[in-house]
Computed example of a mutant assay.
Amino acid sequence: MSDPHRLESGQIREAARRIDGLVRRTPTQRLSVEVPSGPIEVVLKHEFTQFGGCFKARGSLNAILSARADGRLGDAGVLVASGGNAAIGAAWAARLAGTEATVVVPETAPPVKIDSLRRLGATVHQIGDHYQQAADAASRLATETGALLLHAYDQIPVAAGAGTIGLELADDVEGPLTTVACVGGGGLLAGLAATLRAGDRLVGVEPRGASCFDQARRTGAPVDVTLDSIASDSLGATRVGDICWASVADREVDSVVVDDADLIEARRRLWENLRVVVEHGTAAAVAAVLTGRVTPAPGSTLCIVLCGANTSLDL
């Protein structure tokens, strides 16, 4: 019997058809970057130019439209808990779908993300000091109000929407890919894993102080972790999601961990060299390449997903 948590390529293609023309097909940029072994060619996927400044709009919209088609979207709209980006994606998608959005974020969520949520018309509750506390509160609120509860990452339609990035990369970049993406709860990683073709490889990157996926790989099963990273506002899951864990099994997916200093330096280099500003969490994927921890296999193109830019220049 197949695992109900495991994403398959057909679910990604279905999501792509559902959200086609409603989200941005984000651009790629090919360039040479300097790494310890010398210059290498990479392709950057500029997903930070997506509606809401992050890939999360893809999954939220897919989930909302799917629920509406099935008659599961009521007058109370949608409700989601998030460190910020999933909430912004849900608020943007809800506005497009003409329904209400209520979000629960930790009290530690960056003000720039709270401001974005309010501009999108979402009702914002700040509860707890980390993601899981906000998620528990959101679950209670959904029961009380009847709102459709979206998950930030551990929900099939949400992760399937994120996976549409992989389909775009396969269309835009010829040949086998080595795709590098940061990992929070693993929705993006799960979606990308379901799009892997023969010869492709996927690398999930986390800060050492927010490494629930890497610690699960080392342990052999998802485990609760303690957060201690500058990127925990966006990569703030304390346990990798069941969908991610099931979807990476038996697929060409690796795990890499970087230090906070590495991702801070990667973020600085993106700004100084390209005038691109991303979140600290997003910069983790770049850091893995710049430090030489990830290199492309022979005959493979190295692709980095720049997945979010909901941050402040002051940082």
Rank of each mutant, 00 (worst) to 15 (best):
S255Q: 01
G185C: 11
A81K: 08
L167D: 06
L227H: 09
G77I: 10
A288L: 07
A135H: 11
R6M: 06
R17P: 00
Q215S: 09
T49I: 08
G128I: 07
V248N: 01
L141V: 11
I243Y: 04
R251G: 01
L65F: 09
V305W: 06
V256T: 07
A135P: 00
D260M: 03
A170I: 14
G98F: 07
G308N: 11
E252C: 04
S37T: 09
L44Y: 13
A147R: 14
G71S: 07
A90I: 12
A109R: 10
V276Q: 14
Q29P: 00
G186T: 13
L196D: 02
E206R: 12
P176Q: 04
R95P: 00
T28N: 11
A287S: 05
T311G: 07
A86H: 15
D154L: 04
R269I: 00
R201Q: 10
A237L: 13
A284E: 03
C303E: 03
D262C: 00
A97P: 12
M1C: 10
D224I: 08
F213S: 03
G52K: 15
F213G: 00
A90V: 11
E206Q: 15
D200S: 08
D314C: 00
D228T: 12
A249Y: 11
E279D: 05
E100V: 14
E168Y: 04
I127D: 03
G121H: 14
Q50T: 01
E47H: 15
G186L: 10
G204P: 09
E41R: 02
L263D: 10
T26K: 05
Q133E: 14
D242W: 12
A69R: 15
T178Q: 03
T108V: 15
L315D: 15
P39T: 08
G209D: 02
T301Q: 11
L202E: 04
I88S: 08
R293N: 00
V205Y: 05
D115V: 14
E144S: 14
G187I: 09
A15H: 03
R201S: 09
L117R: 08
G199Y: 13
